[in-house]
Design a protein around this nucleic acid. Sequence first.
DNA 1: CGCAATCCATACGGTAGCGTATGGAAGAAT
DNA 2: ATTCTTCCATACGCTACCGTATGGATTGCG
Lengths: 189, 189
Amino acid sequence: MAKPEPNRQQLDRAAWIKAALDILAEKGVDGIRVEVLAKRLKVTKGSFYWHFKDRRDLLDAVLETWKEGRIRDIQKQTRAAPGEELPRAYHVIEVYSANRNRKGMMIEIAMRDWARRDAAAAAVVEAVDAARLEFGRRGFEARGMPPLESSSRSLLLYAYVFGLSLMSCGKFDADMDEMKRWIADRIAN
Amino acid sequence: MAKPEPNRQQLDRAAWIKAALDILAEKGVDGIRVEVLAKRLKVTKGSFYWHFKDRRDLLDAVLETWKEGRIRDIQKQTRAAPGEELPRAYHVIEVYSANRNRKGMMIEIAMRDWARRDAAAAAVVEAVDAARLEFGRRGFEARGMPPLESSSRSLLLYAYVFGLSLMSCGKFDADMDEMKRWIADRIAN
DNA sequence: CGCAATCCATACGGTAGCGTATGGAAGAAT
DNA sequence: ATTCTTCCATACGCTACCGTATGGATTGCG
């Protein structure tokens, strides 16, 4: 009768996708190799080719999974705290610019590197970026800022956050925290 | 007597490094394969292993070449227009955020993705970033801004520029140019 | 129990790429 | 002219991976 998922001990697509995301964070897209994943999951690729048509099938599934997750995150935040747009801007900077959320940030970078060469990945990244920018824009507009300024601040915010994550992830200065605070203020106020 | 370079018709290290940088921009580090480069240069890998010990030797040379080029660019700009710090900030944003300099931007991204997994690459990227940030900081300080603010603006400027280049390279909005102008103003003034 | 579907292991052929070994061509040195 | 150095071609073995084919094990179901 094809019940959804009663109690599955064996691997399913989700397990492969999760493993693929792990490697994506570590090694980039080119690191996603089916035989490597199989070894990591303690199975052989016979399993893989049962669940997936080929490697590309997995990659598409990874893209779709990541996209849905990011979009859902945005929607969650949107519903979460209406009327608290200012602290939210700081929070975004906090979460993404720190060494916390390291893996998530790694995936972000890998995704964008991937998007340079893959049309499907580019489309996914673009959709996620659009959603985030729109989210940020609404936050600033809710504080009474005009449309152009809101869009600009939103773009500045996200570009800054991602750009910072690219900068070697190291510290350039002892006053990094103060600098970050100055910048967050500059963007949000 | 080993004269430096009278008139060389054959390939030398520089040719391989240049080809490697081309592929780096197109496919990322993992795209740099010696047999692929050889085919592109119309030779066999017999040539490659004459000029380089192994693939890693080439990668290190690529890193060193890129690093020296970026540092030299900074120094050139530093000497070029002292006293014109404001238009220079706009110019940086212009040059890097546009679709011009596309290949250079591609290499920047590939380098940073590379730096996630390779210590040598990370060190190079960090050195280049440090030089650029210091360059920007001096620019703002020359306009009379205090140290912390200058450092912060410099960091914001570069993080924004690189972050923007990650955002799918597509347009999110019809008013993109106006937004960029607003942002440039926000960063520089 | 027997049967069928589900999920995985094993084995195979094929390509791409690394690094080595060796020979050959072309010019420089003597 | 012979020899030596420089630079590249060819051929080889080896590993990592992809995708397929096929058989085996387990589980739900009649």
